[in-house]
Write a protein that binds this DNA or RNA. Structure first.
Length: 277
DNA sequence: GCCCAGGGATGCG
DNA sequence: CGCATCCATGGG
């Protein structure tokens, strides 16, 4: 897939491995607006305006380098799909979500976003995050940036409750008050196992949330986050009624290995979009 | 009113 | 360890 880079624009002609709708709607980003042929995507303090058709994708931004990496445009997804298509469970999901790419989201944004995501639904997650951006993030003119750690340290438990975090409000306040920029930065140089241990030590972060933060915020693809949807998928495919998510996580990681993160996204998008029981 | 959502913390054995 | 129960909140 060839990407043309200009000063303020990326152009992709005949994008075989990139579908904007699929990539934005597969639950890895909560700040975007989209309609039939255009979208606006927000990450950290940046934004990109996208227009798309089957023949062409145009990404406009004043930080092209950031969004080139954000949309993972250096990676060959056709190769990944060729490998994963050999798996009979995955084949229909890849056919459906052929244009999914795993976004390289901002790490701190992922930590906050996925703490909010626990036992929650995507609509409510989006609203809570919007609230935090509007009340604590820098005003960028047309939009508000995702708040920095320093900015969120000014938020109280009450603020988080007003944002709709419910019982996660106290967890968030504690995690934000304890977390330092240095710790966040240091995650980049840790091994996956060290990353997981640190992340799980944060209030509101368990196995699944840690895996999501690693997958979307640290680029670690050898993780398989298991949420309620993946739990349903697993039971449907294996004809079981397994409820032990730790066991499901281990089994799916054993099956998909270093490509677990990709496999998980194809499954999630396919089954959630088709509302499989 | 019940059930569910990209689960985690807690307590109990 | 594993396991059950509880937890805010809003939409279906």
């Amino acid at each position: 897939m060839k990407v043309q880079r200009f000063k303020n624009k990326l152009i992709i002609d005949n994008p075989a491995d990139f579908d904007v709708v699929q990539t934005l709607n597969c639950g890895q980003i909560f700040r975007y607006v989209i309609d039939a042929n255009s979208a606006v995507v927000f990450s950290k303090d940046k934004c990109a305006n996208i227009s798309f058709s089957p023949a062409k994708i145009e990404i406009l931004s004043n930080d092209v380098d950031y969004f080139y990496h954000f949309f993972d445009l250096d990676r060959d997804y056709s190769k990944i799909k060729r490998t994963l298509e050999k798996d009979e469970f995955l084949r229909p999901a890849i056919k459906y979500g052929y244009g999914i790419r795993i976004l390289n989201n901002d790490l701190f944004e992922m930590i906050v976003s996925f703490i909010i995501s626990a036992n929650n639904n995507i609509g409510r997650i989006k609203k809570s995050i919007e609230y935090l951006c509007r009340h604590f993030g820098s005003n960028m003119g047309n939009y508000h940036a995702f708040p920095t750690l320093a900015q969120l340290k000014k938020a109280s438990v009450k603020d988080y409750q007003s944002a709709g975090l419910g019982y996660r409000a106290e967890q968030m306040a504690e995690t934000i008050s304890r977390l330092t920029e240095k710790e966040i930065e240091s995650l980049n140089s840790m091994t996956p196992s060290e990353q997981r241990n640190f992340l799980i030590s944060l209030k509101g972060v368990g196995e699944k949330v840690a895996n999501c933060i690693m997958l979307f915020g640290l680029g670690v693809k050898s993780v398989f986050p298991v949420d309620t949807w993946i739990n349903k998928v697993y039971n449907a495919l294996t004809n079981t009624q397994q409820k032990n998510r730790k066991l499901i996580t281990e089994e799916l990681y054993a099956r998909y290995g270093e490509l677990s993160g990709y496999a998980q996204q194809y499954f999630f998008y396919y089954y959630r979009d088709n509302k499989i029981k």
